[in-house]
């Protein structure tokens, strides 16, 4: 079973506005759908990009998240109460499916990502790529919840409170999950370094 939650108290948009926006989106109003897309696409893209690291796949998955939202709004398959939590939950499922299916390209193809600081030497870039790949491999060895918490907290910079609301867990549970995830990550990194 996959436990999710759709907290009612957390919305980046004013609750009344959000309710109104949801109602308009359920009616497939283009302006409402466009507003939701503009508001949330960048965060969803970054989230997926961190976890998949394949530009084309990232675009496909991020786009699919919003088409799934359209499905949910239109067919009421999964009730949407908190748009952001719903989008991140769906993004997480799609990313996990993608990882499980080994659909993404090998990590070794980590390309010349724009995050590499300008002016770095080729040696630094190679070292950076190697380190990044090692961390990403180690992260994929964690449980889905652990991957989710590390991505939201340290790749997306969400606070504990925001992470708890997105994941539908208590703050205490997220803190404990985070701590264990970091411990496990460290072990996997050490294990990877020895191999």
């Amino acid at each position: 079973m996959v436990y999710t939650s759709y907290p009612l108290t957390f919305e980046p948009i004013h609750p009344t506005t959000a309710d109104n926006l949801l109602a308009r989106a359920q009616a497939l109003e283009p302006a409402a759908l466009s507003q939701i897309h503009t508001e949330y696409y960048p965060a969803i893209y970054r989230y997926v990009a961190y976890r998949l690291n394949d530009e084309q796949l990232v675009e496909d998955v991020a786009g699919e998240v919003f088409l799934r939202l359209l499905d949910a709004l239109h067919n009421r398959l999964r009730p949407v109460r908190d748009i952001r939590a719903w989008l991140f939950g769906t993004a997480s499922h799609l990313v996990n499916d993608s990882l499980r299916n080994k659909y993404r390209k090998p990590l070794e193809t980590l390309d010349d990502h724009e995050s590499i600081p300008v002016g770095e030497t080729p040696e630094h870039i190679a070292e950076f790529n190697e380190r990044s790949a090692a961390v990403r491999v180690a992260i994929t060895a964690l449980t889905e919840d652990q991957q989710q918490v590390l991505t939201l907290r340290f790749a997306m910079d969400y606070s504990i409170e925001e992470t708890a609301k997105i994941m539908g867990k208590s703050i205490g549970a997220v803190k404990t999950l985070q701590f264990r995830a970091l411990g496990s990550l460290r072990r996997y990194l050490e294990q990877g370094a020895k191999e």
């Binding site: 530009e55 675009e59 961390v135």
Partner: peptide, 24 residues
């Protein structure tokens, strides 16, 4: 280690436009 591998905050505008068009 996670912080150092965060990558860019840049989101490709073209990807965003394509996604928005598909949605609409």
């Amino acid at each position: 280690a996670v912080w150092q591998t965060r990558g860019s905050d840049t989101v490709p505008v073209a990807a965003m436009v394509r996604s928005r068009e598909r949605l609409l």
